[in-house]
Amino acid sequence: MNLRQIEVFRATMLTGSTADAARLLHVSQPGISRMIGHIELQLGVSLFERGKGRLKPTPEAHALYAEVEQVYRGVQRIDARAHALKSGGGLELRVLATPSTLQEAVPAALASLSVDYPDSRLYVETQLVREMVRLLSIGEADVGISSLPIDHAPLVTDVVGAWSLSCVFQRGHRFERESAVSLSEIVKERRIAFSPDTPQGRLVAQAYPDGIDPARQRIEVRSGQIACALAAAGAGVAVVDNLTARAWQNDRLSFRPIRKAPTYKVFRVRNPNSPSSGLENAFVQRVRQGFRALAPKRV
């Protein structure tokens, strides 16, 4: 029996007549009668006793109906699941992100996604690039948002945003009077330094290869969040990414953009062996929108 035959047989069982079954299915009564006759011929058994405009199901019909109901409930579940996909039902998204992107853009995208896809399940964790590459390569995550470029087969990347550098400092510092600050002013300050292999450390080292006073950078960090916490405590000024600077601004910490600071790209990273879901595409679209709103301005 095909699905149409199952539908006609079930409607006839529920209503007890071909006329009522036809009304239920919005088709003609002769069509229902022909279909029931064809089913009986095909199965080689009698399913109904005819009489006085009513159809009385035979034991064979009752046995068949028990199986049909299971199929019908399965079809209903499929239909319900298909409609639920619009709100994320049965879908999950596993997101990895480097720390700075989790300060504002990625959380905002996930918050919006959870509203528009209320039945989805969202997982997010911060990872450094090396671990992000491993998890995406083995299929343990769906998408990564990285503030650093990744070149690792089979992963592919595309640009979703950009970030630049800012100077953070304790409230009340003289830099608050400026709309932007220069590296030449920053290196004169007591400074929380970044390791030389970080974008922040490279920028300062390239700009002032011989002009940095080691006595002014007694604290070295690798995390923008730690640098912000130290700056807020009065340990010095620090050069951090503008994403972290914005997120950490409070009544103890302020920041200003750095003049002529380079701009760096933010990447969506994924494994092309696993097709993107609609949920992932919606997430990435929101990430792009978030970074457009946070786009660094050249000063």
Rank of each mutant, 00 (worst) to 15 (best):
residue 42 Q to G: 06
residue 255 F to H: 13
residue 128 L to E: 06
residue 72 Y to T: 07
residue 108 A to V: 09
residue 26 H to R: 15
residue 69 E to I: 11
residue 67 E to W: 02
residue 8 V to G: 02
residue 285 Q to T: 12
residue 205 A to R: 10
residue 202 R to L: 02
residue 33 S to R: 08
residue 154 P to H: 04
residue 207 A to L: 05
residue 165 L to A: 04
residue 222 R to I: 09
residue 2 N to Q: 10
residue 231 A to Q: 03
residue 122 L to E: 03
residue 63 A to G: 07
residue 220 E to C: 01
residue 113 L to C: 04
residue 293 A to G: 06
residue 155 L to D: 01
residue 228 C to V: 00
residue 189 E to H: 05
residue 169 F to I: 00
residue 35 M to W: 07
residue 136 L to Q: 11
residue 96 L to A: 07
residue 27 V to C: 11
residue 201 G to H: 00
residue 41 L to F: 09
residue 102 L to C: 15
residue 150 I to V: 15
residue 144 G to S: 05
residue 141 A to K: 01
residue 215 A to H: 12
residue 198 T to W: 06
residue 35 M to Q: 14
residue 256 R to A: 13
residue 88 G to P: 01
residue 271 N to P: 08
residue 189 E to M: 04
residue 200 Q to N: 10
residue 123 Y to G: 04
residue 63 A to M: 09
residue 119 D to M: 12
residue 62 H to Y: 08
residue 97 A to F: 06
residue 123 Y to Q: 11
residue 111 A to H: 13
residue 182 S to F: 13
residue 279 L to T: 08
residue 262 P to H: 08
residue 50 R to Y: 04
residue 3 L to I: 15
residue 31 G to S: 10
residue 256 R to F: 15
residue 95 V to L: 08
residue 209 P to D: 09
residue 283 F to V: 13
residue 65 Y to C: 07
residue 289 Q to D: 15
residue 208 Y to T: 02
residue 166 S to W: 02
residue 139 G to R: 07
residue 41 L to N: 15
residue 195 S to E: 09
residue 250 N to Y: 00
residue 16 G to M: 08
residue 163 W to E: 09
residue 282 A to P: 06
residue 297 K to D: 10
residue 94 R to G: 11
residue 66 A to S: 13
residue 122 L to N: 03
residue 9 F to G: 05
residue 40 E to S: 06
residue 166 S to N: 06
residue 293 A to R: 11
residue 227 A to R: 00
residue 166 S to C: 10
residue 250 N to P: 03
residue 261 A to Q: 01
residue 58 T to Q: 02
residue 237 V to Y: 04
residue 153 A to V: 09
residue 147 S to T: 14
residue 27 V to S: 11
residue 133 V to P: 11
residue 287 V to E: 06
residue 253 L to C: 01
residue 146 S to E: 02
residue 103 Q to G: 13
residue 159 V to A: 08
residue 128 L to V: 14
residue 195 S to Q: 07
residue 283 F to T: 13
